[in-house]
Write a protein that binds this DNA or RNA. Structure first.
Length: 464
RNA sequence: GGUCCCUUCGUCUAUCGGUUAGGACACAUGGUUUUCAUCCAUGAAAGAGGGGUUCGAUUCCCCUAGGGACCGCCA
């Protein structure tokens, strides 16, 4: 058997969404597992809607999540001549014919079918007509001569055998009347020429597969293997579309989801290997198989993504975590100053315990990133006269110390709790607000130690 | 409407004829932590319905119901 080759073939007519990314991931994993190659084909033949910006977004997305394709991206529009060539051959072999129906005529037929509530299918009017009868003023389209008799079985690697009556497949157009090839022709020709051995794509392509299989057969090409994976549904249970919110990788990236977490989540969405939930990249390549792909569509679950992200935040190395965080801040929030990097790195050990996302880490580390504390009005109200006294006392005690250590801080705070006849919250909360501007965040000792004596004094002074 | 696909806890799923139907997320309760979070423990939670086949069906077959995809000179 020839070398395994898979491909991902998006059209750059909109941003790549998470469903497409999962399809790409499955194809990529499958080829890696089999020691094959994975190709990227940009299907940009719809010149009206294709945009370079989308192409770039697709490439960027794949890169972000760690999917790398072999060779250069294959640009479908640059291969149109090949597609036309095949169409001509099909015409010559009698597997295709010229259809002189005007688009008005077709529209009319569709309308009538709708009124009668019967399914529209092209009536194959020109299939056996002689060309001498052709109207002179109409530029014909080329239609594929689909089989009428019998049925076809698709041996689907995910869905099993799928049988369909051949007469339900119409004589589809392969060349428009402007001479340009249509989707099914281009795809079949490209896949064949790229020597794709396994076509793993969304279930929404299943009908196309039957059309493309006929082209393969007519050209006497060896059929590739097909696997139709169930679609990802929104929480409303509908097919995920480019228009859905929170569907592109950037939508997740900007709320602080890390690529490894999303990759792991997507892997387990519609695929499983026993009870295993966490897969390193190596493990996913090792265990991935088509048998593990489920047959029913699955819904996106944001809390699951977040919890996967939380796992990776806690389990990747702090060095990697810093890199991810640094990049996140740079892209979506605020560049971390060079003088702050060290403090952040040291604080990651406790910051990550409270975070489900990089955004959480950001929110909890603002007190380090920004020199000026920004206060929430409601929180400031919590610092009353008594609290101000406590803060002043605390600052006074701290200034006597040479070095800030947890033990000394504990002693100071405990003494204040006694002196002011309050509890930990009574002392801790005002201090926290004064130092960070927020009621929530890391432990008070962690905050103080990471800030250091000078910053503590400076910040507390402003309050009292 | 036609064709095709699907149906196990709220969600993602395990089970390849015999299980107290398992795990994970979310949820609830309790414990640890002198706040919050983390962490730990516990709990509630599922085979769409009806027929077969079988000694025995979540598992195999059929029907019904529900959901989905496709039905472009878009890809």
């Amino acid at each position: 058997m020839s070398k395994i080759a898979t491909r991902f073939a998006p059209s750059p007519t909109g941003p790549l969404h998470i469903g497409g990314v999962r399809t790409a991931l499955f194809n990529w994993l499958f080829s890696k597992k089999k020691g094959g190659i994975f190709l990227l084909r940009i299907e940009d033949t719809d010149k009206e809607r294709s945009k370079d910006e989308y192409k770039d977004q697709i490439i960027k997305s794949l890169k972000w999540i760690g999917i790398n394709y072999d060779g250069n991206e294959y640009i479908q529009s640059s291969k149109i001549d090949n597609h036309i060539q095949v169409a001509k051959e099909l015409l010559k072999n009698g597997h295709a014919y010229k259809c002189y129906c005007s688009s008005e005529e077709i529209e009319e037929q569709k309308k009538r079918a709708k009124q009668k509530k019967i399914p529209y299918i092209y009536d194959r009017k020109w299939r056996d007509k002689k060309e001498v009868d052709a109207p002179k003023n109409i530029e014909p389209v080329i239609r594929f001569k689909s089989k009428i008799e019998g049925s076809t079985i698709l041996k689907d690697l995910v869905q099993g055998d799928v049988q369909i009556e051949n007469n339900t497949i119409e004589d589809f157009i392969i060349l428009r009347n402007d001479g340009s090839p249509t989707y099914n022709l281009s795809v079949a020709v490209d896949d064949q020429q790229m020597k794709v051995t396994h076509i793993i794509r969304g279930d929404d392509h299943k009908i196309n597969t039957f059309k493309q299989m006929q082209i393969y057969n007519a050209m006497q090409w060896e059929l590739p293997n097909f696997a139709h994976i169930p679609l990802i549904h929104t929480t409303e249970g509908k097919k995920l579309s480019k228009r859905d919110k929170a569907s592109t990788l950037d939508d997740y990236s900007k709320i602080g989801i890390m690529p490894e977490a999303l990759r792991n989540y997507l892997l387990r969405l519609g695929w499983s290997f026993k009870d295993k939930e966490i897969f390193t990249l190596e493990e996913s390549i090792e265990h991935f198989n088509l048998e593990g792909i489920g047959k029913s569509p699955s819904k996106l679950d944001k809390s699951r993504i977040l919890s996967m992200n939380e796992y990776y935040i806690k389990n990747i190395s702090e060095k990697d975590l810093f890199d991810r965080f640094n990049e996140y801040c740079k892209n979506y929030k605020q560049v971390i100053g060079a003088n702050k990097e060290d403090k952040i790195k040291k604080s990651l050990s406790f910051l990550k315990n409270k975070a489900k996302s990089l955004e959480d880490i950001y929110n909890n580390s603002k007190y380090i990133i920004f020199d000026e504390v920004s206060f929430d009005e409601n929180d400031v109200k919590l610092i009353d006269e008594k609290a101000k006294k406590i803060i002043a006392d605390f600052r006074n005690e701290v200034s006597k110390e040479k070095e800030i250590k947890k033990e000394t801080l504990e002693t100071i705070i405990n003494n204040l709790i006694k002196k002011y006849e309050t509890n930990f919250k009574g002392v801790g909360q005002p201090l926290r607000i004064a130092l960070t501007g927020s009621k929530f965040g890391p432990g008070i000792y962690d905050i103080m130690i990471s800030l250091g004596k000078l910053d503590i004094e400076k910040r507390l002074k402003k309050i009292t």
